[in-house]
Design a protein around this nucleic acid. Structure first.
Lengths: 349, 349
DNA sequence: CTGAAAGCGCTTACAG
DNA sequence: CTGAAAGCGCTTACAG
């Protein structure tokens, strides 16, 4: 029989019972007060509870609440990396909207390891997060598990395809078209493309839009693919070298900023002047692209806006769940319009 | 009387009872199995439980466990910003060690707003996080509240001082000394310093170490202070302008990389050649400092290592709490040795 | 407008 | 080696 040891950290650990006792009401009433929905509570009662709470410095226990309500106030955020400058912006965007709504962020990083990803998703399930935003499309197996739990999820992955999950992404086709078109307008006729791994859908879209735009303009296209799933500066530099060995483009559209910066680096080291010898346009507009000595012309993928949008969609799902309405709105796909940011490397400025 | 509505998301929501039933044992036994400490459980029982868990795809409910154990498996991480390249590295470091230990990260950003900070700390208390690492020293009021809860906390703030909390920081004195000394060794005699807000302890230390080093070398010192709490590139550029209006240093040691990059920018725009006209050394070694066109010489503040160390300290505290030992080890202060990273802007290379 | 009581899904001393 | 039962701190239909 559980003789209860005095709570180890007896410190102040004040509970709803303490508040109720002090205010001279039942815990049920305090709970209702806390829920602050449209419960009717006498003004006097309300005041006494309010006072008791302040006097005791009471903060409800989130775990107890989560257990009772069968749902936590956490939103899981799973990204491949947090050091990559793209994701912190997405996360900031998520926080912009979830904070106000009273949600908390549970963050996990996968380093793009499948095992780690499964583990992380399991952890999110254990935590019974209210929703998740994933920076990478989960594998079918994990996807099924998630679906089974009914945890609302939105993908901000740049590589997601036909999964039945809400998704928000930048419009890669529009962005790549703008980038290519801009180079054409600068007068270039030999425009190359350094693409990301083509099994990632958005990279594929970017490459295709590049080709289509060239074709429409009556230009040949020269494209190259980098296979690293998360292409880095080194990949970009290397691709640039390969490209220039065989071809002599006057401009290149690079599928992401990190690679584009690698291209700049390669040019720098090899006496290739940018933009005079080679104009460069990237994709993403990570903040680093705007640095003084970088000044990369690029397509703004609105990472922060994507985060905000993802969070907004999640909150909307929550509401729909509550209202117990038909709710069967299928998975949505939101496309954020990109924006061309002209700087030094394309020849503007 | 609570006639229980069928759980809305009845999906699979499998509980420890389901596992116990399926394995033909009591929930207590399953719980012991889960705790996997040195409980004695018959091998057969152990196997049946293991099978039941797999078959049912059971994942314990973290909220229930947290409630029962009076402690969650979360570690709160509170940083001023997540877009600033310094903090993601710290966070990555924290995750490096907490992940393996089975802890989860609860992330919150304060934007350096005091109100937001109080709110965030309250949220951490509500969540009953097992521990916290704070990127900024809390105000006395909040500090007292935290102490009251007994939540283990470690500061990685660059501005912390005499609070009674575990702390890990880079050795600012050693770093600033190395930076200044290096410039002296390059033959400079007129070395300036652009400092951060001097009410932040580490910035003060850096300025003081700079002065001391100059003095020891028989040089005059010229220093300037930026007041913005989180000094940016713009602050650095502006400080550089002010500096050059009145003085003609041949080198400058800048108190953080962001400002140093602003200095580079200012020079760039005004035809001041780096390092020939002005040598520059920063502090932090955020990854951006290593970019091809930046190549800033700087002091590596080991952000990731700081994160790792902070997390390690936290875990050690947890152990001490469990062992119920004298435990009264006072607040520790860990100092990480810095490292000079020479690149282009100091004249090396 | 308010309260009694069951229930959320675990853990843990105790008693076998 | 195993289990019954109390307790963690909330919420919520129901009955007043």
């Amino acid at each position: 029989m559980g003789k209860r040891f005095p709570t180890v950290a007896a410190h102040q650990r004040v509970t709803i019972d303490d508040v109720a006792r002090r205010a001279g009401v039942s815990t049920a009433t305090v709970s209702k007060y806390l829920a602050n929905r449209d419960y009717y509570i006498a003004e006097g009662t309300r005041r006494r509870i309010r006072e008791a709470i302040t006097e005791l410095d009471y903060l409800p226990n989130a775990a107890a609440r989560a257990l009772a309500k069968q749902r936590s106030q956490m939103i899981g955020v799973v990204v491949p990396s947090i050091v990559n400058p793209y994701y912190p912006e997405v996360i900031a965007g998520i926080e912009d909207v979830t904070e106000a709504a009273g949600y908390t962020l549970s963050l996990a990083t996968t380093n793009d390891s499948p095992e780690r990803e499964s583990a992380v998703l399991a952890s999110m399930r254990q935590q019974r997060v209210a929703g998740m935003v994933l920076g990478r499309a989960p594998r079918d197996e994990d996807l099924a598990r998630i679906a089974g739990t009914g945890i609302d999820t939105v993908l901000v992955s740049r590589e997601s395809v036909g999964t039945d999950i809400d998704r928000v992404q930048v419009d890669s086709v529009a962005g790549a078209t703008m980038a290519t078109q801009h180079l054409i307008e600068h007068g270039h006729r030999r425009i190359a493309h350094i693409g990301g791994p083509q099994d990632a859908y958005s990279f594929k879209q970017r490459a295709q839009a590049y080709r289509d735009t060239c074709t429409r303009a009556g230009l040949d296209y020269i494209d190259l693919e980098v296979h690293n799933r998360y292409p880095t500066m080194a990949d970009g530099a290397d691709a640039c070298r390969r490209l220039l060995e065989k071809h002599s483009p006057t401009a290149v559209f690079v599928a992401n900023d990190l690679m584009a910066m690698g291209v700049l680096d390669h040019c720098n080291r090899n006496g290739i002047r940018v933009p005079d010898d080679l104009a460069v346009v990237g994709f993403d507009n990570v903040w680093v692209a705007g640095l003084p000595n970088v000044e990369l012309t690029t397509i703004d993928a609105s990472a922060r806006l994507i985060g905000q949008t993802a969070a907004t969609i999640l909150l909307r799902r929550f509401e729909a769940n509550d209202s117990e309405a038909p709710d069967a709105t299928g998975a949505t796909s939101t496309v954020i319009p990109p924006r061309l940011v002209t700087r030094r490397t394309c020849g503007c400025d």
